[in-house]
Simulated assay, not measured.
Amino acid sequence: MQLTDDDVLANQDMDSPITYVASPRDDHVLREVRKYQTSEIANVHELQEYGDFLRGALKPLGLFSEDFLPRASSECYKVTFRGQLVAIFRLTPAAPESAFHRTIPGGRGKKILEVNNVAVEQSYKGDLLLGIIMRNCALLSHVKGYDFVAGLIRYEILPLFTDFGTIPVRHTPFHVLGDEDVHDFVTYFMTDSKEHIDYAISRSYHYFHRKVTMRGIAADVDELKLCAAEAMGS
């Protein structure tokens, strides 16, 4: 049975054996992931909120263009943390013979879904959000029948995506903003088979496990330092 979009977005755990190939099941990790809820934007108010969030995230970096706002063919999504909007992203079918079709190995003639408008609230950067977005983009691409899900990413932040598990393409840089000093590169997931989507799922859980575990270790170390400082003071 094929999942609907709502099923994909509601099934935050993807609770199958393949999930835990790279890391052991940890209910604390799963509880942390469940605090984030992803949903498709469905009304005008939410779309206005989406546009305001995008401007607020990109304008301070000098990277915003009105061309980045959603088109009629786009599907927009938001991620909330305990009801607060913390991230957005957009999915748009890539036009035939797009830059993605020309650069992704085996991409010609395939169905490719483009991810763009990925924006994260500043205080949540470096947390679980990127992994949640990338996982859901891969899952949605798969259930919608696309062969690839891909994005154009600035060179400076490309490692954040490839470290998560997306596949970078080595090509002559694109200059989406028209600035020759801003280099953009394609990175993608294959989403045309269960094996490919299993890879994205297992990578995402490993990412979540590593993030949550390291956050706990950092807190433990800080507590040890505090105890040591208090012992010296007494």
Rank of each mutant, 00 (worst) to 15 (best):
R108C: 08
E121I: 07
M190K: 14
L152N: 02
L113T: 05
A72K: 14
H171Q: 06
T166A: 02
T166E: 04
R170K: 11
S193I: 08
S123A: 14
F64C: 02
D67I: 07
A57M: 15
T103F: 08
T80Q: 09
S234M: 12
L128D: 06
H209E: 14
G151K: 03
T4N: 00
P159Q: 12
T166D: 03
D5N: 15
D13M: 13
E223H: 14
F89N: 04
P60W: 03
P17F: 03
F148I: 10
D5F: 06
L9M: 06
E66Y: 13
T92P: 00
P93H: 02
A218F: 08
V115H: 00
K59L: 07
A22V: 08
F81N: 14
L61S: 02
T80H: 06
P70W: 04
N116L: 02
V182K: 02
Y199W: 09
L58P: 01
T162P: 07
S202N: 06
I88S: 01
I197Y: 01
V21P: 12
P173F: 07
S16V: 15
V169P: 04
L130M: 00
Y36V: 07
H142L: 05
L177E: 15
K194H: 13
N43W: 11
L160H: 00
L140P: 01
Y146R: 13
L9V: 06
A200G: 06
T191S: 09
F64N: 02
E223T: 13
V79W: 00
L54E: 05
G62I: 14
L58S: 01
E32M: 08
N136A: 05
G106M: 10
L85T: 00
A138R: 01
L113H: 01
E49L: 14
A72I: 14
Y77N: 03
P159S: 12
M214L: 10
L91T: 02
R210N: 15
A218H: 14
E230Q: 14
I112N: 03
H142Q: 10
I217C: 09
K35F: 06
D127A: 08
C227S: 15
V21Q: 15
F174G: 05
D222Y: 12
V115D: 00
T19L: 09
F89I: 08
Q84T: 15
E114D: 09
L85E: 04
M134C: 11
K110L: 12
P93M: 06
D26H: 10
L3D: 06
I157N: 12
I133M: 04
N43K: 10
G107T: 06
L140E: 00
R25Q: 12
R170A: 13
L140R: 00
E180R: 13
D181Q: 11
G165Q: 01
Y124Q: 13
S202I: 03
S141C: 13
M232H: 12
D15I: 05
T38C: 11
P70R: 07
D52Y: 07
E75D: 13
L129E: 07
F68L: 15
Y155E: 13
G62E: 11
G107A: 10
S141K: 09
I153W: 04
I104N: 07
H142G: 01
R71G: 15
D7R: 01
T213E: 04
V186G: 02
